[in-house]
Design a protein around this nucleic acid. Structure first.
Length: 572
DNA sequence: GCCGTTTTCGGCCCGACTGTTTTCAGTCG
């Protein structure tokens, strides 16, 4: 029973309790615990074994339930609960617009216990037989079901950012608009997002709303009120707009940026201090007087907190850190001096080394590592040792011509199934920097895969393990390995772990990056560019680094060239 | 079901929009 499986069971319990109309706070307790369990990289079974199940939101009762799940793989309470309601009710509740109350009503009055039955009833206009439901609800049920069927669960951050850019560019032409910011999970730079949130200030909200629903990417209007609207774009992405008065911009930006969990936490904190926070400002509870609201800094200051960067606002300890004055000084894009993972036409890239160097330089980098694939990776035209020698000679001549920029000779060497590398040490010693990666045998056991990675890290030439988990977002899960053991070895051997910046990888993810930092592991940023325009993906990698609480000192790429080379030599 | 810089009991974030009915519950974020 993995952490995510346990979290999923807790969420399911919450859903069932909700249909059964149980105490709202009890339901929330299960959801809160589930979220905190997902934020742990350590295997919860180990924590149970060693009796140190200290997780926020997990008290005596939930700790007992986790222990039962970890030890037996089952939970009596959950099994009994499942018998109380048909499984189909949970999927009905997942239809947008249909919540626990409606689900229960449909089940009790019409015996509906599946999406199929619900769809049939709606087509036959039987929904209106239920008191309180009319034609509009019937329509919304059918729309919701259709949406559920072909909605892509997640939108990649890179895709969402492109759509957000188009929306805000068009909206910025409305003369009545004074300020605008993207908010929500896009602003927090989550790797995937469900919708795009846009905040606008204006004293003429109606004008903004009118313009918003007429923007060219809009295909459907989902909701429209005087200050709030929601549309769906032709790409199928939901965009929410909120308009507030200028004096409320900061409070609204905090509120609309979230996360929901962060908002709840700061509102609780406000309450303890006799204050109330909503999207219009921070108010004194006694006399309703506004004490802050115009800027985010003011809002946090009213709570006696320093400004908390959006990427940290997940209620994963950032508020406590802020209170102690221990927020990290997060890495920023201009501090990144290099791209340490770049391909060229010598293996599976589409451009010459010269073209890639020019593009990297144009992006403000001081150096980059060309890291083409090794010999056995046939699909990617991996380089033989002879070709490696040729490439190194070629790069040497190129470097002579370059001013204020340096190309490093690197390789992305394949880690074979037994943990040995695709090049001998004799070949590896010629490179400035060696990246190692798993490209095959993803189905190996947890122990095998862990040993494979650890063996690779013990090689003195391996500087960085790239895309360490092997996942592709919404396409392929990470291979099974013991991250704690791998991170410990990385720290001990002085091997860096990569944040691969390719939009579908973003591997390591934010949670693991943060854990790596805690263990003193250096992190490397690599765009894995196969063409010049892909260097822009560095922004995504920086976003993950920031979400993982990284400071410039945690990141290899922030080292000056000489320092970087010195560090690599240290491991040799 | 959790939790404690007033509390081990009694709180637990806050508001907008929709659909329905006519003052509000349900849903969402």
């Amino acid at each position: 029973m993995t952490n995510n499986e346990i979290a999923h069971i807790f969420r399911t319990i919450a859903d069932i309790l909700e249909i059964n109309d149980e105490n709202f706070f009890r339901i929330r307790a299960y959801r809160r615990a589930a979220q905190n369990i997902e934020n742990i990289t350590e295997d919860i079974r180990e924590m149970v074994k060693e009796q140190r199940l200290h997780i926020p939101g997990v008290g005596v009762d939930l700790a007992q339930k986790i222990t039962e799940l970890a030890q037996t793989g089952k939970l009596e309470y959950f099994e009994a609960l499942k018998k109380k309601i048909p499984a189909g009710l949970l999927e009905i509740m997942s239809i947008p617009g249909i919540g626990p109350k409606t689900t229960k009503l449909l089940h009790e009055q019409l015996g509906i216990d599946s999406i199929a039955a619900l769809e049939k009833a709606a087509h036959e206009h039987k929904i209106t037989a239920v008191f309180g439901l009319k034609e509009k609800t019937e329509e919304n049920i059918l729309k919701g079901i259709a949406l559920l069927r072909h909605k892509h669960e997640h939108t990649l951050l890179s895709t969402a950012m492109a759509v957000a850019e188009r929306i805000t560019r068009e909206l910025s032409r409305v003369p009545e608009l004074s300020r605008m910011s993207v908010a929500g999970s896009v602003r927090r730079q989550k790797e995937t997002v469900q919708d795009i949130d846009v905040l606008v200030t204006s004293t003429q909200a109606q004008k903004i709303m009118d313009a918003f629903i007429r923007l060219s990417p809009v295909s459907e209007i989902l909701a429209q009120g005087p200050t709030k609207a929601a549309v769906r774009t032709i790409e199928g992405i939901q965009v929410d707009l909120r308009v507030v008065e200028p004096e409320s911009f900061g409070a609204a930006l905090v509120y609309f940026t979230g996360s929901k969990e962060h908002n709840i936490a700061i509102r609780e904190l406000a309450k303890k201090n006799g204050l109330k926070i909503n999207e219009y400002g921070v108010f004194s509870e006694q006399d309703e007087r506004r004490v802050a609201g115009a800027t985010e800094e003011d809002v946090y200051a009213a709570l006696r907190l320093p400004y908390i960067p959006p990427e940290l606002r997940e209620n994963r300890g950032e508020i406590e850190a802020a209170m102690r004055g221990e927020l990290p000084k997060l890495i920023e894009r201009p501090q990144v001096r290099a791209d340490l993972h770049v391909h060229s036409e010598w293996s599976d890239g589409n451009s010459s080394i010269e073209a890639m160097a020019a593009a990297a330089r144009g992006r403000g980098f001081e150096y980059m590592a060309i890291t083409d694939h090794s010999q056995s990776l046939g699909v990617a035209h991996g380089l033989s040792p002879a070709r490696v020698s040729e490439q190194i000679a070629h790069i040497k001549t190129l470097n002579k011509k370059l001013k204020n920029f340096r190309i490093l000779c690197g390789t992305e060497v394949d880690i074979k199934a037994d943990g040995t590398l695709d090049f001998s040490d004799k070949v590896l010693e010629q490179f400035d920097v060696v990246l190692a990666a798993v490209h095959s045998g993803f189905k190996q056991s947890r122990d095998q895969m862990t040993m494979r990675l650890i063996t690779a890290m013990r090689n003195p030439y391996v500087a960085i393990i790239v895309h360490p988990s092997g996942r592709l977002i919404d396409e392929r899960p990470a291979y099974d390995f013991d991250f704690e053991a791998v991170a410990d070895t990385a720290a001990r051997t002085g091997t860096a772990l990569e944040i691969n910046c390719y939009p579908k990888r973003l591997d390591l993810d934010d949670v693991h990056v943060r854990r790596a930092r805690e263990k003193g592991v250096m992190v490397s940023l690599g765009t894995d560019s196969h063409s010049p325009e892909q260097f822009q993906c560095m922004d995504l990698g920086v976003a993950v680094a920031r979400r993982g609480w990284l400071e410039p000192g945690n990141v290899l790429n922030c080292l000056k060239l000489e320092e970087f080379l010195k560090r690599i030599k240290q491991k040799h």
